[in-house]
């Protein structure tokens, strides 16, 4: 259905060329919103939409942007989109918007956006740019979800607010790992994700 090239554009960022663990983009928010699964999911979706849209818009106007002021133009496009998304979230999902707090606004300075706009949208057609944005957004969301699942499950025994670890475990002496809720564990977990990702990909490479 899709040609090999478009497939690579869409699926590459999910694993082999993942924006977070391989390209090291957008780490800040990836670490900060992963205490629970729900904000992580919302953040992943928000970033995916914004990257895809921003890629399309910048790609459409790429031939008219003067090289010297391109960063400002890109920032304004992204800032406008982020403002839209943040107003929508405040209207329909106020509690999640409050949980994300400044990190929603910080999507503007998320390196994934600037990185993809610079590296891809400035030189490619709108449709390819859309797929690239979609792929990168999803690649980012996957890492967020993995880290958030581990942190919420081990840290508070819940997923999306539902109790997963049964009460009988607590009665038998099991305790939630409070460490998982600390900022430090997010860093260490991402470190471990990178470790696993690299060791698997190295084996495939051989």
């Amino acid at each position: 259905m899709l040609s090999q090239k478009t497939k690579d554009t869409l699926l590459g960022p999910l694993n082999a060329n993942n924006p977070v663990v391989v390209q090291i983009l957008g780490i800040c928010s990836a670490l900060a919103v992963t205490v629970q699964l729900k904000p992580a999911l919302v953040m992943g979706i928000a970033v995916t939409i914004i990257v895809a849209m921003a890629n399309v818009i910048v790609s459409l106007i790429r031939n008219t942007i003067p090289m010297r002021v391109r960063i400002i133009v890109q920032l304004v496009v992204v800032a406008a989109l982020v403002t839209l998304v943040s107003e929508v979230l405040k209207a329909f999902a106020y509690d999640v918007a409050m949980q994300l707090s400044v990190y929603l606004g910080l999507i503007i300075t998320n390196c994934i956006l600037m990185g993809r706009l610079e590296a891809f949208a400035m030189t490619n057609k709108p449709w390819d740019s859309f797929l690239d944005g979609l792929g990168n957004g999803l690649g980012y969301a996957i890492i967020l979800v993995i880290v958030a699942v581990v942190r919420e499950l081990l840290g508070s025994g819940q997923l999306l607010g539902f109790q997963i670890i049964p009460q009988s475990f607590y009665n038998a002496g099991y305790e939630n790992n409070g460490m998982m809720l600390m900022p430090a564990m997010a860093l260490i977990l991402v470190g471990c994700v990178i470790w696993v990702h690299r060791s698997i990909n190295d084996k495939e490479g051989k």
Partner: peptide, 23 residues
């Protein structure tokens, strides 16, 4: 450092430990 952990991986874990200390 173990090979897959070299570079970025170990840096993350180092920062994590520093963050623990700063807590």
């Amino acid at each position: 450092v173990p090979k897959p952990l070299q570079g970025l991986g170990i840096t993350f874990i180092t920062v994590g430990l520093m963050a623990l200390a700063f807590m």
